[in-house]
């Protein structure tokens, strides 16, 4: 391993191509931490945004007027404002309104740190899209199917859980995948509130080393690989879930 590191150090000295995260231990650890933070943030947001989507779509079919209005308001608010500004708003405005807790360095810190706020904010953002995606899928399920289930005495929740959702899920998978891929890319915004994810760490490195070009190329490739893995996994899943002749 040391040989590889040394090779990149030589590469810098010889050609000026500076990849400090490969030979400098401090920068390397930063980059690895960044990668893990990105992956962790993505997974947390994926999970919660799907939960929000499923629950939201169900609540939208509710017979209470105000429940539906509330969900609609949430969707419209989050869909029609920039996620970056949402993130700032959550972190700086809402974050300071919440009660504080004693922390281990003797100060008062907010309950949620920047990672938590990024996770909350991005989950709600992607969740708003997911609600609409699931809703469109539910609407695509033929009425006769739902009626047949009703005739068989299924309860409302049962119909949603056992009939509508599984069918809708297959219909919406492409749209859902698209949104989830977007979500992973949107995690780069967490950079703005100093969540140490990949873009943030890369920025720190290029500020210290003045090597924007190299870091930029590396970042593009890194995200290409990361998202590529997600996309191919999703596609495989899409194929596995496919019902022949349906959708």
């Amino acid at each position: 391993m040391e040989m590889v590191y040394e090779w990149f150090r030589t590469l810098y000295q010889e050609t000026g191509i500076n990849l400090p995260f490969l030979y400098d231990e401090y920068d390397r650890n930063r980059m690895i931490d960044g990668l893990f933070t990105t992956v962790k943030l993505s997974l947390v947001c994926l999970f919660f945004s799907i939960i929000i989507g499923v629950i939201g779509a169900w609540l939208q079919g509710s017979s209470f007027k105000w429940t539906r209005r509330f969900v609609s308001g949430y969707i419209q608010l989050f869909r029609n404002t920039p996620p970056l500004v949402q993130l700032y708003f959550f972190y700086f405005a809402i974050g300071t309104l919440l009660p504080r807790v004693e922390n281990d360095w003797g100060g008062q810190s907010p309950i949620f740190g920047s990672f938590a706020w990024a996770a909350i904010s991005l989950s709600f953002f992607a969740g708003a899209f997911n609600v609409e995606i699931f809703r469109s899928g539910i609407e695509a399920v033929p009425k006769s199917t739902v009626e047949a289930a009703e005739a068989l005495g299924f309860s409302k929740l049962q119909i949603y859980r056992d009939i509508t959702l599984p069918l809708a899920f297959r219909v919406v998978l492409p749209a859902l995948n698209n949104n989830l891929v977007n979500l992973v890319k949107t995690t780069t915004l967490a950079y703005a509130i100093a969540v140490p994810e990949m873009l943030y760490e890369a920025n720190q490195i290029w500020s210290d080393n003045v090597n924007v070009t190299e870091m930029m190329v590396f970042l593009l490739l890194a995200y290409f690989v990361l998202v590529g893995i997600l996309v191919s996994g999703m596609n495989r899943w899409e194929r596995a879930m496919k019902i022949p002749g349906y959708g």
Binding site: Y88, F92, G95, T96, R100, G107, P110, I193
Partner: peptide, 11 residues
């Protein structure tokens, strides 16, 4: 502005 705010917010 963000940094001052984060400091005052206890972050």
């Amino acid at each position: 502005a963000e940094a001052y705010s984060a400091l005052k917010g206890g972050n």
